[in-house]
């Protein structure tokens, strides 16, 4: 469904992404793993339309989206839950969620989406009137994911959702993602937490210095001697 080919991108003359190709099929759960600085976040920014690539193509359902901006990407169905969550701090939980459903396709189903998100994260329903900045880190992550779901994504992309969360909350977040995937949501997950992200995903890519160096079934990658040595410390 998502076809990414030969993406080259970066800020100024530094090319953090140097010719990345990857694909995600409908209903798949794909992990993109790699160390800090491997270029994952830059690639996520390109996919979400925040950053225009220098070259390469991004196709969703056959439609070319490279360089056409975030508004187009969201309208087409690529939705990013960004690193650091980026909730709107001085707005309530409810307002944050409503903003998620800005694109015209999602706006029509806003009320129904809201019920779904509240069912998935009952904590958000309890705190709907609270300002987002008063939430705990785990709750903010729920809010960021919930807000992403409000956009009715065809593919949900998450950048380091485990960052800054306690192991228990990371487990909880991942369980929620697995449930969403089981319900039919296509997910691309960029993570430094290699062990966990390969455990929940079906397929994975390993990124290093702006390039994909390994790809395959997550279980296989987790067993691969190179991955084990470099990322799992085994």
């Amino acid at each position: 469904m998502l076809e990414v080919a030969d993406i080259v991108a970066g800020y100024g003359r530094v090319l953090a992404v140097q010719g990345v190709s990857l694909s995600v099929a409908e209903r798949e759960f794909v992990a993109l793993v790699g160390a800090n600085g491997a270029g994952k976040s830059t690639l996520m920014k390109v996919l979400s339309g925040l950053l225009a690539p220098k070259s390469g193509s991004i196709r969703l359902g056959g439609r070319e989206l490279a360089g056409s901006g975030a508004e187009e990407a969201v309208a087409a169905g690529i939705v990013l839950v960004p690193e650091g969550r980026m909730v709107f701090p001085r707005m309530t939980v409810l307002e944050n969620l409503l903003l998620g459903a800005t694109n015209p396709r999602a706006r029509k189903d806003r009320e129904r989406s809201l019920e779904r998100v509240f069912a998935l994260f009952p904590r958000l329903a309890e705190r709907r009137g609270q300002l987002a900045r008063t939430l705990s880190g785990g709750e903010q992550q729920m809010l960021a994911i919930g807000r992403g779901l409000m956009a009715l994504p065809r593919i949900l992309i998450l950048d380091e959702p485990s960052l800054g969360l306690s192991p228990l909350l990371v487990q909880e977040t991942y369980k929620a993602l697995q449930r969403l995937n089981a319900d039919g949501l296509t997910i691309l997950l960029a993570e430094q937490n290699v062990r966990l992200s390969l455990a929940v995903s079906t397929r994975g890519y390993v990124m290093e210095h702006g390039r994909i160096v390994l790809a395959g079934a997550s279980a296989k990658l987790a067993d691969d001697p190179a991955t084990r040595k470099a990322y799992l410390g085994l």
């Binding site: 979400s48 508004e71 960004p82 909730v87 709107f88 998620g100 800005t102 956009a151």
Partner: peptide, 24 residues
């Protein structure tokens, strides 16, 4: 209103506002 929320979103975090699909 939706418009007001969008204005405040742009004010509080431009990148996040763009990720919502708000026509900045």
């Amino acid at each position: 209103t939706d418009f007001g929320r969008q204005v405040r979103a742009v004010t509080q975090n431009r990148d996040a506002a763009a990720l919502m699909g708000i026509p900045i």
